[in-house]
Write a protein that binds this DNA or RNA. Structure first.
Lengths: 264, 264
DNA sequence: TATGCTTGTGTGACCATGTCACAGACGAAG
DNA sequence: CTTCGTCTGTGACATGGTCACACAAGCATA
């Protein structure tokens, strides 16, 4: 409960992040202290932001002021950046890496709600912040995360004064809400074979390989490990893929794709 | 698709709303044209807003300007105010009545995502508007709806200039997102008997009566009518309630409540 | 090379939920 | 009273989730 600190220590400018707890997903490292560059580095921030057209085009003075108080942050993979029930402090803008936002049930089952990818902002932070609520889910870094942290006060000034930033933030909200509604639809009405098949396609590399355990896939889809195992076995029986320990190899991509549109 | 108009006709100041399509919920009336008061009526708006402390306390000039261009709207019960796939035009603030926001599957099953009650704003509208997306769900009035409509341009000015309005809007977003996450959790991990029992408690009046069809409850919970029927029958068998046509009477409230915490 | 440990996978039995088909019951309209 | 549309009940079956447990693949260590 009280083991997370996500605020700058005034004297040392050190950002403390604790990662504890359990997750069925990969990347379960537990890190404790993440050092942060002690001074504002506009050059770095400008360089990072330059990859993202929505914001890099902005040149209004308020946005520039916001950037001046922004602080670059680096967080190792597998760190819990916020947990269910926490309060929160900063507005985070992801430059590189991703944060997996997930919900965990009492019985241990998990479901991934969405990911905050590079070029996106963690709107859950904002929304908690401004509606004085606690996080309704937890967020875990999936890769080494580079992000820009903006204090609440500056975030608010940015929203007030920069039409471009405002537009960006509301866009983020819109996409997240649409994502969540899609997820509700999927979970409530979707069939497991289709959802799993789709997930396989999404996470396969160019060679049709997927390096995930069944448990990880179950946590992604919000189902049980056995269900994934059974379904994958059935896919293998049909000759669409080959199973290995912690790895899957898609051998008949067209057939798998075809199944997604013609389930029967 | 093209049968909805939700913009003021410049010459006549008439708000056109068409309600068509099918829904398994109640209130299936199809209305066509909703006349709207032709002039701005600050008195009416002030009176309505006075019931909602979050906004009525605001006296900054920008918010007052927003209110000056706000238009009161009345929409009959059962009207589809927006449908899945639509674009949108106005920011709506509900004064009285409620809008049910739901998602419909291809096979006809439905699920209620949330309700926009009196004192709340339809953030889906805003989010679509500002992220240039289409509605990912549909909205239907459940009672006679009184609302205040604010044009996009003024909404944007309000966000920029009024800290109070900004805070209100972000609060709305936060609550909706939290609601949706709770719903995902419920649908993904929750048991049907618990969800149904909870819904019964929530929708019963003081006498323990619920005037809803099994189909309506199924649409609320995103399940099938048969499942609700079976579950209710089981509740009746246990002596917790009595079933009637289109109505349920809770006869043992304590036992029902107890089941929600001790399912077994 | 054996040994034991941890993690990942396979499987059968059983319960919960969703689908389908169809019967019957109720109430309103004629 | 009949007719009709709506609402409810039910059995059979398909899918998905839970539980218990076996077994296999990798890894570390003796």
């Amino acid at each position: 409960m009280l083991c997370r600190h996500f605020a700058a220590d005034k004297s040392s400018q050190i950002l403390l992040i604790r990662a504890e707890g359990q997750s069925n997903m990969q990347n379960k490292k537990n890190e404790f202290v993440v050092p942060e560059p002690p001074r504002l580095d506009r050059t770095v921030i400008d360089e990072w932001l330059s990859h993202f057209p929505e914001l890099s085009g902005l040149d209004d003075p308020v946005w520039q002021k916001v950037l001046d108080s922004a602080r670059p942050v680096e967080i190792p993979s597998g760190t819990t950046v916020f947990r269910d029930g926490d309060g929160c402090q900063n507005y985070m803008f992801v430059i590189e890496g991703a944060v997996r936002v997930q919900k965990m049930a009492e019985n241990g089952r998990e479901i991934v709600l969405y990911r905050v990818n590079a070029g996106e902002a963690c709107i859950l932070t904002t929304s908690c912040l401004l509606s004085h609520q606690r996080y309704p889910a937890e967020g875990i870094t999936e890769n080494k995360l580079r992000a820009i942290s903006i204090p609440v006060k500056l975030f608010d000034e940015g929203i007030a004064g920069s039409a471009g930033f405002r537009s960006f933030v509301f866009s983020s909200y819109g996409r997240r809400i649409a994502d969540l509604i899609l997820l509700v639809e999927d979970v409530a009405f979707g069939r497991m074979d289709i959802r799993l098949g789709q997930y396989l396609l999404d996470s396969a590399n160019d060679d049709g390989e997927i390096a995930l355990t069944h448990q990880a896939m179950a946590a992604e889809l919000g189902t049980a490990r056995e269900v994934v195992s059974r379904q994958l076995k059935e896919f293998e029986r049909r000759g669409w893929l080959k199973l290995g320990r912690g790895a899957i190899n898609i051998s008949d991509l067209p057939a798998l794709k075809d199944h997604l549109s013609t389930p029967i």
